[in-house]
Design a protein around this nucleic acid. Sequence first.
DNA 1: ATTTAAAGTGAACATATGTTCGCGAAGGAG
DNA 2: CTCCTTCGCGAACATATGTTCACTTTAAAT
Lengths: 201, 201
Amino acid sequence: MPEQLTKIQQKALDTIVEFNRDQGFAPTVRDLSSILDRSPSTVHKILLALEEKGHITRKEGLSRGILIKRDSHNTATIPILGRIAAGEPILAEEHYDGYIELDSSIVGRGEYFALRVSGDSMIGANILDGDTAVILSSNEAEKGEIVAALLNGEATLKRLMRKGRRTFLMPENPAYSPIELDEARGPAQILGILKAVIRRY
Amino acid sequence: MPEQLTKIQQKALDTIVEFNRDQGFAPTVRDLSSILDRSPSTVHKILLALEEKGHITRKEGLSRGILIKRDSHNTATIPILGRIAAGEPILAEEHYDGYIELDSSIVGRGEYFALRVSGDSMIGANILDGDTAVILSSNEAEKGEIVAALLNGEATLKRLMRKGRRTFLMPENPAYSPIELDEARGPAQILGILKAVIRRY
DNA sequence: ATTTAAAGTGAACATATGTTCGCGAAGGAG
DNA sequence: CTCCTTCGCGAACATATGTTCACTTTAAAT
């Protein structure tokens, strides 16, 4: 998909990325012109080429309208959820407890949220009290996946398992008991699938 | 520290943050003028006030030169290090193996880098093979902290312990042996202190 | 040798954009 | 009431900036 770039195109792209990182905003045509030691019109052409090859997006006519295509790295804003009451929409603003910016290599596409892990019910999966769990919002999950589920009005992590036709939420700690998940969405509701764990020291 | 904002100032700040998130770059004075339904000169004054109160930084004369001050959330670019050879400066470009954007609530201030954990020597601390370790670059560490150390030309995680005058790097796995760290920086060198662990599923 | 695409230049143009100026209104402090 | 700050307007100004044009150069492909 990513077409081959010429030397100067690559250099221009690198410069744009670096400028963005250092300055916090995109360079102008003349910024690039000065850095690359090329005329504005030359830079303009190079930008058109970069856009055509899909590496950047330009907002025509707007100053500093260069956007680096979300190819490798960018960040997404993930809300950290506090208390969650049963039945309420999971992503309602009310239970926001702050947010965190995470690299797209962690979160990928889709609706995400984060939970602070409390308790030791997943210690067997090396997930500890205080860890931040990054969850992909979903009502379904595959067997073997660790899911965030709503139990008694509280969100917890459990590993999803199937035995024949029956589905269980398994804590990874022998001190806790499995919970059966019935079809009628009885006692438990799957909120999403665990995609990452972040632990701070 | 953050001075009280007037209603319109708060609204302007919110608008700037939102614009930045949605568009990927800062708004112009006239963008704000249009959104807030105020004249450009009014917006200009409000921006000056916001700058004076420390909420934004402006690059005078530059278009889209509004930068939101590092208040609550922003991200830092952390290099992921691959192979590290003894003696070489740790953050030399040569062993970059990509990078990751992380929230400032994870990395804080200071020089950081990341390592991919390989092996199970820290399984007792619930750090697994494949985890990403976020390290604060430092030559010193307190006892009890988990450090990244250079052993035989390879970076590994160990917990730092002291016994009298002697310092040891302890793997958290009974299958591995402690390594003594001598004053003369003999067999091992401390690269930094573990600040976070990220695990992907 | 001829053709073609990319790279390059410098000047010119159109407009996007930050800034200044002079003026007025609203509201709190004294 | 007066003083002061903030908020407000519209016009004007200076320049920053994207874009176009006409033409040349370079390098690779035919």
